[in-house]
Design a protein around this nucleic acid. Structure first.
Length: 280
DNA sequence: CTATCTGTTCTGAC
DNA sequence: TGTCAGAACAGATA
């Protein structure tokens, strides 16, 4: 489900809700989605929540971390005695209060609260790993700089674009080159920058690269402000929907903000939305 | 009923 | 080594 803003919204929720909680037990209903040993985290306390691109790291006080990738349709829902986790999920399969048929992993804390990992398509995963080894999976050789970070500079973009003859949209979504940008935000950023998603990355002018850098950061920040998107299954840790979809420019729209017809094609097998009047 | 769609990313074939 | 279709999965939609 999520791209950078969605995962970041969840990270903030985890940090706020789960800090200092002690893991009492873990129930793994679908072993395939859980990598590592439950025994490594039982009794450990949660001290921090971090994020690299679209992957969450829950840091424990015993030298281990839980890495979580939600892929297309994963959810993390926190529930305690005082909160009911059902938000207005638009996806019918998630209407029930967890745990339900699509709850695959349940973390129970010593105060009786729970964290539920739901994923009806089972693409996502949880991984227990030594915190010192996290960089082997999430290191800078695996994930490029993220919008908002200092490494995400005009010079850097110029460099990676010049080396790629691929469609600019594919480069934006390449996690090794740029961290955290997925389909929704790539479509919107290109729209606001007035650049066709099919353009070869190396044909972008300096002015276009500068503009694109700005619009990528703009849509990511807008996503953060609106608490993520919620077209299908996205909900934050309390089960509430985000609102970014209310302000997307072209993603899954018929008309752009100016009333032009939005064209729809496929790039790299992904739905691609653009306006051939506004984007050149 | 059939075909095609879905916010991700990994693998295997060439 | 780069690129690309297909895979992993399950449902919604037309």
């Amino acid at each position: 489900m999520p791209e950078l803003p969605e995962v970041e919204t969840i990270r903030q929720g985890i940090k706020q809700k789960l800090k200092d909680k002690k893991i009492k037990s873990v129930e793994v209903k679908v072993p395939k989605l859980f990598i590592g040993s439950v025994n490594d985290i039982i009794g450990a306390k949660i001290v921090d929540a971090k994020r690299v691109a679209k992957i969450l790291e829950i840091v424990l006080d015993n030298g281990h971390s839980i890495l979580i990738h939600l892929k297309m349709t994963g959810q993390l829902i926190y529930k305690d005695d005082y909160s009911q986790a059902v938000g207005g999920h638009s996806q019918k399969v998630y209407d029930a209060d967890p745990p339900h048929a699509y709850t695959h992993i349940i973390y129970q804390f010593s105060d009786g609260s729970h964290l539920y990992f739901n994923d009806f398509r089972k693409f996502g995963w949880n991984m227990i790993i030594e915190s010192s080894k996290v960089k082997e999976i999430l290191g800078p050789d695996k994930f490029g700089p993220e919008p908002g970070q200092s490494g995400f500079s005009e010079g850097y973009l110029k460099n990676i674009f010049a080396k790629s003859g691929k469609a600019i949209k594919l480069v934006l979504m390449d996690q090794q080159k740029i961290g955290g940008v997925g389909n929704i935000y790539a479509n919107d950023a290109l729209y606001w920058a007035g650049i066709l998603p099919t353009r070869s990355a190396k044909t972008l002018s300096d002015v276009e690269i500068s503009k694109l850098k700005t619009t990528i950061e703009k849509v990511i920040n807008l996503g953060l402000k609106y608490g993520g998107s919620s077209e299908n299954t996205y909900v934050n840790i309390e089960g509430k929907k985000g609102h970014y979809m209310e302000v997307t420019a072209v993603y899954q729209k018929n008309k752009d903000p100016k009333g032009h017809i939005v064209k729809r094609i496929k790039i790299g097998g992904r739905g691609t939305f653009y306006c051939d009047i506004c984007q050149k």
